[in-house]
Computed example of a mutant assay.
Amino acid sequence: MSELTHINASGEANMVDVSDKAVTSREARAEAWVLMTPDTLALIVEGRHHKGDVFATARIAGIMAAKKTSDLIPLCHPLALSKVEVKLEADGERGGVRIESYCKLAGQTGVEMEALTAASVAALTIYDMCKAVQKDMLIDGVRLLEKRGGKSGEFKAK
């Protein structure tokens, strides 16, 4: 197992110094699922939800969350993101909504946490908007799909 980078020699949490790292293009994709009944999914897809467009609201929430990641995760660096994208897709076979986020920048540290935060907050927003209809929805499968750039190179989930 590799060394934990956010722990100093004394065992204390600290923010990693990235000042000597090269500025490179960095990208990350993440996903999350919100599993629900067919009736709840139909309400969203057919645009019959009384609170409005669930997908549009979740998309904006995910984008906003990516930009606020360093405010939410204590040791994350504030980043000047150049691109944030949140895609939502209804999946009747699995019974829910698949969320995929994408973040990109030219910087000294990766954007994995921003992509994961975007997908997570989009999922939470769907839950929030639909909880009056179904309280037992399940947020599931939040994970990093891939990342590119930086010293550790490429990663792609299996």
Rank of each mutant, 00 (worst) to 15 (best):
1 M>I: 12
1 M>V: 13
6 H>P: 03
12 E>T: 04
17 D>M: 07
19 S>F: 05
20 D>P: 00
25 S>V: 09
33 W>P: 00
34 V>F: 07
35 L>Y: 13
38 P>M: 10
39 D>P: 01
44 I>V: 15
48 R>D: 02
52 G>R: 08
53 D>M: 09
57 T>S: 12
62 G>H: 01
64 M>F: 08
64 M>D: 09
64 M>W: 06
65 A>Y: 09
67 K>R: 15
70 S>F: 14
71 D>Q: 15
71 D>F: 09
74 P>R: 12
76 C>S: 15
80 A>D: 13
87 K>V: 15
89 E>G: 08
90 A>E: 01
93 E>C: 02
95 G>L: 02
97 V>G: 05
98 R>C: 11
98 R>W: 09
102 Y>V: 03
104 K>Q: 14
104 K>P: 00
104 K>H: 15
107 G>M: 02
108 Q>N: 10
109 T>Y: 07
110 G>R: 06
112 E>R: 10
113 M>A: 11
117 T>H: 03
117 T>C: 11
117 T>N: 10
119 A>S: 14
120 S>D: 04
121 V>S: 04
122 A>M: 06
130 C>I: 00
134 Q>K: 04
136 D>A: 09
137 M>Y: 04
139 I>W: 01
140 D>C: 07
141 G>S: 08
150 G>Y: 01
150 G>P: 03
152 S>T: 14
